[in-house]
Write a protein that binds this DNA or RNA. Structure first.
Lengths: 212, 212, 212, 212
DNA sequence: GATGAATGAGTATTCATTCAT
DNA sequence: AATGAATGAATACTCATTCAT
């Protein structure tokens, strides 16, 4: 009569496993929401657990501590963003031509993941270690690309590539963080267009630049 | 000679007052150092007091609480920076011509006040209220100037002035914060030159942007 | 036999709940003892926790703060006292006939709950808000009853009912607080008899009172 | 030409002495006001000093500590009240005949010294030591008088004199403290009349009291 | 005497983390 | 795996009191 019941142990385990994953997901989701809203310091583990509908202690079955949860969340967000940016850019072409695609990718990301943007770009000193700082990595890879093109004579060396990359990263990060706080500040289209049209040029521009 | 002893009351008062001011200065100095090194949260009032060589309670004789000390420091730093930027720019001339002077002013400020730069540009959610956020104010005043020139036909309207101003501010802030962490990353001269040469221009992109 | 182990969840929960309740009880008991002995101000939350055999933080798991603990204790004591007084009095009969029963109820209460009496009757400015001041409420209900009987001609209107009620309450409170400090000061019987025989009567004074 | 100047030292001393007395008075006055308004615990020495217009340290030139100031104030108030009550009562006559005069004296005292009444009658555990508890002393002297008259057959022994004295004291104290909080609660005349008419009498109760 | 800056022990309160069930 | 009561170190802040000027 117990033929139809699956082996209890196995069942229990897989049920537990499924439940374990689900619990972890709920904790992550609660963490995203709370960290985005209040920042790392203002959030307590109790709060995260309660928001996830689990007991206090359960938190520690899934994450070593509060920073670990934050890390997991930030890393996932960064992975996703990086993936999208990688997909948008064509390494062989000059940055200039990738820009519209990058801008569109960034804005879409921000639209779909406001909370992630808030978390990534509100990064303060206590939050992430240098190793995992997306902005720094982005800057580094931009600088690399530019250095490469300078070496091949495809780009003028007028601008220090490292400084330029920091400037680019700072610019995009600020704009997107500013927009995400209130998306009505600019339409998606205007945002993409403006980000696209902004070009960092250290040139004696062929076409005289209309003064800002 | 009848060298008169100074009026006792005045002396007494100024002695106390001098001591009070000196203590306050020491607390501010300790605060600058600690906040720059560890951020608002990681610093305790005990620590600040001890670094200043005074007792715990003395801290509260001079500042309502930790945030108040931070506020005082940030406000002073912002005041000084704003003063320098104001002095560097000539309102009547277009931003483009002020840029070299602004860059030089900013770099000098960063050189002389590394700690202040760290404090100002690490502003996180808990740190300063929007009202007193220098970056926001700078962005606003840049946006205003640009809007004014667009209205007078002195500048093309190709770029949204508000977005542009955020971009500018983000760019400069990131670059200077990056540099201050390790001034050997770029020479003062290169830094100023690069910041100067970077121009945000709205070009007529070769490839029209496909809207999503 | 198939003696089923109790449902694990229920067991677990009730074990935790039982422990929680027990801890709360211990904190309340420690609070009663300490507040009675030293008063609200002289007692610290650490002290209460230690007396209850729990850690500092546990206190705050059960009570918002020290005043909250005090409030809970005072309210419970007042509830019990009020219940006893209500049970002792027969609303339909004049106060005079209820007095012996009230006196006996009060004395019994004081005998069984010396600490509560100390807490209730040492109420100082910082202790309870007016709303929850038993004495005031008692006075009010006494005044009401008397006003009612005056309206029905059952009692002379010679005495202001509000003032009289305050007098009654002050009298009983003082006597019981005095006795509780050292019950050997009077036998239980004498106390009840004396309280019973004391009647507040508005006499027709032999000598008219010269008004100032 | 300096004939008219009094000896400087003497002058200075007496000026200082005069000033010393004045400062002390101001501290006492501030203390009365603040203690009446907020109670012993809620008042800080800084507050008293500031209200008196002197520096923090000056407080300690006049009073050992906060409790000492409170004590001085309470003792002065009690001395005055006792003096008035003594003057109102005629020791040789039975209490009953002194009552109207005592009531009038008490009410006058309360009218003229609301703050003192608040301080004296809000006495809590931490406030005054038993030795200086006016109410206890009053009760004791009342009890003495009654015991004396009982011994001389002038008063019935139906009521325990000690308990009775506590009742009297509690009654008057409560009424006067209640009134002082809001003198519009009863006219001065009504108050005196009611206090006067209230007589604690040990009657021969119609219904014998069933002992518990 | 007066000043008032400084002291530092005392106290309330929070919260990340543990562990017995 | 989950629970949730308990822990206790950490920290902010207060205030009675002292003392050099």
């Amino acid at each position: 009569m117990t033929v139809s019941s699956p082996p209890p142990t196995a069942t229990r385990q897989s049920a537990a496993a499924r439940s374990r994953v689900a619990t972890r997901e709920r904790l992550l989701a609660s963490g995203v929401e709370l960290f985005a809203a209040k920042g790392l310091h203002a959030v307590t583990t109790h709060e995260v657990a309660r928001a996830a509908g689990v007991a206090t202690g359960t938190f520690y079955l899934h994450f070593r501590d509060k920073r670990e949860l934050f890390r997991q969340i930030a890393l996932e967000a960064l992975r996703e963003l990086r993936w999208r940016l990688d997909a948008a850019a064509t390494p062989s072409e000059p940055l200039r031509e990738s820009v519209p695609h990058l801008a569109r990718a960034l804005v879409s990301f921000a639209e779909e993941h406001r909370d992630w943007v808030r978390i990534i770009f509100s990064v303060d000193r206590d939050t992430l270690d240098v190793e995992s700082d997306l902005l720094s990595e982005l800057a580094a890879s931009i600088a690399d690309g530019r250095r490469h093109r300078i070496a091949h004579g495809e780009t003028s060396a007028a601008l220090d590539p490292v400084i330029l990359s920091q400037a680019l990263v700072g610019m995009w990060a600020r704009v997107i963080a500013w927009w995400v706080e209130d998306p009505s500040r600019a339409s998606r289209t205007t945002l993409i267009e403006t980000l696209t049209k902004i070009q960092l040029t250290g040139t004696h521009p062929a076409h005289p630049i209309a003064q800002p």
